[in-house]
Every structure is written in structure tokens, then in C-alpha cells.
Design a binder for these strands. Structure first.
Length: 369
DNA sequence: AGTTTGGGGCCTCTTACATCA
DNA sequence: ATTGATGTAAGAGGCCCCAAA
């Protein structure tokens, strides 16, 4: 079971919205990564903090990094907490190279295993570090390691030929091995087993980003294909995706916390205002006891359709003919809430833990319809 | 059918390194 | 040239899932 905290447009059905901002806290505190298996297991607790439909919707990932959350400041935030199953979020198509558009069934990831079949010609990626003695990791049980190692030899032979536009690496574009690689090889020669920090080139990072837009997780074939495409080790690709997921989660958490903070402030203001109005109404009632002699009306909220319905209860105090405020009408429907309580008509709807109306036969007993 | 076991994937925390101001 | 901050690749440990025994 996962806890899904979705920050999206509450005026739309955020469970089917194309891009709700959400992170899912599963029992492992992991981000749901659109993995089909996890989605099947997810029983989402969707907590949505909506903004006006016309307001900008915070975009995912890349826009998070631009800290667009500040743009979402809106004092009229309707807040919605939904107990809803999480619905898979469609991933928008990207301009990912065709070779990296994997299908979810792993079936189309075979591109990389057939030499360079289907993949664009090996681009100018430098190799930060090429293993001296084979691949340090081939995690796939049905590994394609043999073919990959064969191809790897080809890549290795091309390493010093490939030029990279990266400033950091461009200094070695003239056939010089990259510094880190050189140092690593030196250590290897010295038998040292110290870890070396190796930067990926901009092209490699961009390529990984594009693939990350498609899939937040990789299956072994995808990982191998990507590693082959980028002349990286599968372990490097795997680590990059792990770190990328962690960064995404961190930023998402920051954005969501900011949303929650603003929402809390909004609700605090709302609560303060309601208290003030309540005091005013009580003062009004005290000063003019006949002014607010309305029938005892209980406003209730239908959890299914989120419609306000009122029921007029007959009490001893309400049996007397109501004396309404000037210019007001006494009704019992939500469509005409007494204007003596104007905020009920204007306040944003706040429904903690509302549920959607799944019953098509749902109807109200009240006249409100 | 239920249990155990090993492998793989992923997450989280952490470290080490590269880069920049 | 040095230093602190920041970003990030990578290691380590743990958890979960799954298939095979």
C-alpha cells in the first residue's frame, strides 16, 4: 500500500489528470515510478492540494528544478484530500531518440542487443571510465553480457576518436583520455582500489535525462542498451537512475512541502476569518436576538457529489415563524444559502477525505439537484 | 502447498570527488 | 593558490520480490 500525495488541480479530477504532481510513499518510502507492477499494488491515499483551474500547474521534474512552485501561490486554494486508487499517470511523449522509446513490456528494448540495430549511430560520447578487465557488473540474469562485451571493444577503440562538446571533456578531445579516466587507469596500474569520481558528459547526461523521462526505472535490457548507447557500464546507468530518482524525490518532496506549507497558511487564514465571522454573528445575535431567528438548519456536505444540502430540523425554537434578515430568503437548499452567511457561498470548498461519487444512481433526498 | 534460499532490483544513507565562486 | 559550498557519481547496507529447490 502506498501513500500518494498528489498535488494537482483539484478542480479537475486529479486522479485522471494528465499531470498531477505526486509522490508516493510506499512501505519502502519509494517514489512510484510508473512501474506497472507497483501501480497494480498501489492503493493510493491521494492528498490533493488543488489550485484554480486556470492556474498554472506545476510541471513535473524539470520544472520542479526551476522551482516553479512559487508560481502556485494562490490564496484560494481548494484543498482536497482524496482516498482514491492511484491512477497511472500517462507519461507525455518526449523527443527521446527512437532507439530509447521502450515499450513497457520490455519487448521493444531489443534494439541494443543487435549490435547497434535500430539505434542511432554511436554518438560522440566519451567514456569516463572503461573497465580494464571486463564489465564490473552485468546484473541481468539472462545477461547480454557477451554481446555487450564484444561491442564494448568496439566502443573502446573509438573512445579516443570521439569528440565531446563538454568543456570539461573537450580538453581531451584531441585524443587525450579524460583526466579521471587517466587517473583511474593509473590507480589500476598501481593496484589501488580507490573510488574515483567520474563526471558524465553533457551529452550522456542529456541522453539519460531523456530516457528518464520515458522510464524512471530500467529493466536489464534497457539498461544494457542504454549503457551500450552511451558507452557506459550498466552499473553506471543503474546508479545514475538511482540517483536521479532520489533527486526527483527530494525535489518533489520540497515542492510538496512548500505546497502544504502554503495550504496550511491559507487554511489558517480561513480559520481565523471564520472565527471572526462567527464572533460577529454571535455579537449580532446578542444585540438583536430576533434577527437571526432562523430555523435550525444543519448544513451537511454530501461526500459523494460534494454538494451542500441542508435539512431543516423542527425544534421548539424553530417552530416560531422565522424572522429573516432583510433581503434574505430562507430556503433549505444549497443553491440558496442564506445570504446572512455570505461566506458559505464564497468560501472555497474544503473536503477532507472526500470520495468520488462512484454510484451513478446517487441522488439526494433533498430538493437540491 | 508451504518454507527456505539465493539472486536481483531498488532505496537510503553516506562518501568521495569535481567544479565553481 | 586556497577554501568552502554545491552537485553528483558511486559504495554499502538493508529491504523486498521472485523463482527455484
Amino acid at each position: 500500500m502506498e501513500l500518494g500525495l498528489s498535488l494537482g488541480d483539484a478542480n479537475t479530477n486529479n486522479t485522471t489528470n494528465s499531470s498531477p504532481k505526486s509522490f508516493f510513499l510506499s512501505k519502502k518510502n519509494v517514489i512510484s515510478t510508473c512501474n506497472d507492477d507497483e501501480k497494480k499494488k498501489s492503493l493510493g491515499f491521494c492528498m490533493a492540494l488543488g489550485i484554480n483551474s486556470s492556474s498554472e500547474r506545476v510541471q513535473q521534474d524539470e520544472d520542479e528544478e526551476n522551482n516553479t512552485s512559487e508560481e502556485g501561490t494562490n490564496n484560494t486554494l481548494p484543498v482536497q484530500l482524496d482516498l482514491l486508487p492511484l491512477v497511472p499517470v500517462p507519461v507525455p511523449p518526449t523527443n527521446l531518440p527512437q532507439s530509447l522509446h521502450w515499450s513497457s513490456d520490455n519487448g521493444s528494448s531489443e534494439n541494443g542487443s543487435s549490435g547497434n540495430g535500430g539505434l542511432p549511430a554511436a554518438r560522440g560520447f566519451d567514456v569516463n571510465r572503461l573497465p580494464a578487465a571486463g564489465m564490473d557488473e552485468v546484473s541481468s540474469p539472462n545477461s547480454v553480457a557477451s554481446s555487450f562485451q564484444m561491442d564494448f571493444g568496439l566502443f573502446k577503440s573509438c573512445v579516443n576518436i570521439i569528440g565531446v562538446g563538454n568543456k570539461r571533456n573537450s580538453e581531451f578531445a584531441g585524443g587525450e583520455p579524460e583526466r579521471a579516466s587517466s587517473r583511474a587507469s593509473d590507480d589500476d596500474e598501481n593496484g589501488a582500489n580507490t573510488r574515483k569520481k567520474l563526471r558524465l558528459s553533457k551529452e550522456q547526461s542529456a541522453y539519460l535525462e531523456e530516457s528518464f523521462k520515458e522510464h524512471h526505472t530500467l529493466n536489464p535490457k534497457q539498461k544494457l542498451a542504454l549503457a551500450k548507447q552511451l558507452s557506459l557500464r550498466p552499473r553506471q546507468v543503474e546508479v545514475w537512475f538511482q540517483n536521479r530518482r532520489a533527486r526527483t524525490k527530494l525535489k518533489q518532496t520540497e515542492v510538496d512541502c512548500e505546497y502544504l506549507k502554503r495550504c496550511c497558511e491559507t487554511l489558517t487564514d480561513e480559520n481565523r476569518r471564520l472565527h471572526k465571522e462567527l464572533q460577529e454573528l454571535r455579537a449580532l445575535k446578542t444585540s438583536n436576538p430576533f434577527y437571526m431567528q432562523l430555523p435550525a438548519t444543519t448544513l451537511t456536505m454530501c461526500p459523494s457529489c460534494e454538494r451542500v444540502a441542508s435539512t431543516t430540523t423542527t425544534t421548539s425554537a424553530a417552530t416560531a415563524p422565522p424572522i429573516t434578515a432583510p433581503g434574505t430568503t430562507t430556503t433549505t437548499t444549497s443553491d440558496s444559502i442564506p445570504k446572512a452567511i455570505p461566506f458559505l457561498n464564497s468560501r472555497p470548498r474544503f473536503f477532507p477525505f472526500t470520495t468520488t461519487n462512484n454510484n451513478p444512481n446517487h441522488s439526494h433526498k433533498s430538493a437540491a439537484s
